[in-house]
């Protein structure tokens, strides 16, 4: 069976997050994943998308493209590619400062930075950033079953 694929163009706003969630719901419709796995993916999607909402076009707004693919094998690997044409921003740049210990220490000191991308790195099985043709392209993969 060929992989299931879909593409979405959406306003990079907090309301747009609902649209992205519906898009992911539709992709995952026939995937037998647990509610817990699904919730983890929701966190991942929220962090990546809200990052675009908050930083890519600020203080203005713009659009984001989301391409999704589900492998039709027993692992049901979901691949989500988020693209925006906003300011160049590599969320993985400070990856080395995002060890679990460092994040916990910062949380204890009530410093809020880096929490979101830390969750993304923890939840995703694979994550890749590219800057190509004036676009931020973030690809995340996660096994759903």
């Amino acid at each position: 069976m060929s992989d299931k694929e879909a593409v979405l163009t959406v306003e990079a706003t907090l309301d747009g997050l609902d649209v992205v969630n519906e898009f992911v719901d539709e992709l995952l419709k026939d995937v037998p994943c647990t509610d817990e796995m699904r919730a983890k993916l929701d966190i991942l999607v929220e962090e990546v998308f809200v990052n675009i909402v908050n930083y890519a076009y600020a203080p203005g707004t713009g659009q984001a493209d989301v391409r999704g693919r589900i492998s039709q094998d027993s692992d049901y690997i979901i691949t989500l590619v988020f693209e925006d044409s906003g300011k160049k921003f590599n969320p993985l740049e400070r990856k080395e400062t995002l060890s679990a210990d460092a994040v916990r220490k910062r949380a204890k000191n009530r410093q809020r930075g880096g929490l979101g991308i830390f969750l993304v790195i923890d939840i995703a099985d694979e994550i890749r950033y590219e800057w190509r043709d004036g676009k931020n392209i973030l690809t995340v993969k996660k096994r759903m079953v």
Binding site: A39, D42, E46, E47, R112, L115
Partner: peptide, 9 residues
């Protein structure tokens, strides 16, 4: 059902 960094803040 879930909380991400915005909720944590």
């Amino acid at each position: 059902t879930y909380v991400a960094s915005a909720g944590l803040r």
